[in-house]
Nucleic acid binder design. Sequence first.
DNA 1: AAGTGGTCTAGACCACCGT
DNA 2: CGGTGGTCTAGACCACTTG
Lengths: 251, 251
Amino acid sequence: MTRDANRSATRATAPTFSPLYRQIKDFLIGSLERGEWGPGDAIPSEGELAQRFNVSQGTVRKAIDEMAAENLLVRRQGKGTFVSTHSDPRSFYRFLRLLPDDGVAVPSASDPFYCENVSATPEVAAALGLQPGDPVIHVKRLLRFAGETVVFDQIYLAADLFSGLTLEALRGGERSLYSLFESDFGVRMINAEERLRAIAADPESADLLGVAVGDPLLLVERTAYTYGNKPVEWRRGLYCTRNHYYRNDLG
Amino acid sequence: MTRDANRSATRATAPTFSPLYRQIKDFLIGSLERGEWGPGDAIPSEGELAQRFNVSQGTVRKAIDEMAAENLLVRRQGKGTFVSTHSDPRSFYRFLRLLPDDGVAVPSASDPFYCENVSATPEVAAALGLQPGDPVIHVKRLLRFAGETVVFDQIYLAADLFSGLTLEALRGGERSLYSLFESDFGVRMINAEERLRAIAADPESADLLGVAVGDPLLLVERTAYTYGNKPVEWRRGLYCTRNHYYRNDLG
DNA sequence: AAGTGGTCTAGACCACCGT
DNA sequence: CGGTGGTCTAGACCACTTG
């Protein structure tokens, strides 16, 4: 992280222009990837980082500002800057967009009932960047809102990252799935992309969700990424939208 | 915008703490609301604003930074800072999340076929903050992707803001709907919230979209807001997701 | 009181855009 | 070239949290 690294780069090849705050941000992201600070930990103060990098505090601030905007860090005035965690209730509803038609959000209950090692189908392999046949973990679960079964999720995880995952661990407690991944496997989901479609209920889903075969269901396919935009989870969720809706804000 | 407005506010009532950059931001937003700068116009330079408000350039920068992050302004290095506009292709796909299963985004064609003044139903009135029976404009249109009819939209607009809207104007040209609202009626959509559900196709929609009655369709209800979070449009869209999907990024 | 993030300043220089 | 936004500095003071 030497100063003036750009200006001295008068090579013939195209130089890699990158402002100081960007280099600091990249360094901090690298530290997160390497797990040097765990979720919920405080990172060094702005002043200390400024000294360590020999830059002004404002430059460190700009790097942290961007990371806070990307939900990688959380600032807390008077206390410090902390690594984001899925245990934080504030970041809980970021990955669950389902709300009841009337009234406010109610805590949902997760009921996993299947967890096996299987071979990746071509579809799953493509989503996770694996080869068909590679080992993956297949989880099935239901989500209930106020007693009503609303979601049937089928979740596929790269087996190398989550080896040892069992149904018992999943049934654990009140923690969210991503919270468990984070604490038990050191895999932090920082990003996800969902693709939504309306489809007709198949017999298995209809049975689990208490609807008739052929009834319309909201299909939500999600690819979730960890640091470096590496896909580590793919899931196929069927949402019963009789009394709930999927909310999306177009900023 | 006097300096130290906070510190001198030693009243008994709870003072309204607000940093300088926020006051400047509020002023700029007010100017946008009052239409002092139209979509696509350049706002005064950072230096000029700093002089005008008797603050440093960095303070103005922070105000503009936030507004750029909220898509209200667009910065262009070397040129200036400009009021966002829906004519800008970059902000086009912010309000249309539908993509074809295979291949890249294709320009969509809008085909409006109905535009009448009607009385607001209770549902529409509630969404637009009106009284049931108040006048609204009801528009129906189809959206085609590469020749395939994919969306059936029913759009409701507060009549006072869009009086004079005709089918002919809607059929106008290649401009997006929000681009037309912006240039012809001075109403800029800055924000929207969508609620998604899966439902069974009714006869009218099935006919328009070329599917069977009862087939699953994606229902997308949108409330769009202009400055001051004032709702000005409510729409009910039915999306045929046979060959397309609704994409959502969970940041 | 000490330490943290939050705001603000005044000035410097760089990168980009137009003429 | 002049004007614009983009980066960076060094230092000041404020607001919040904790001991």
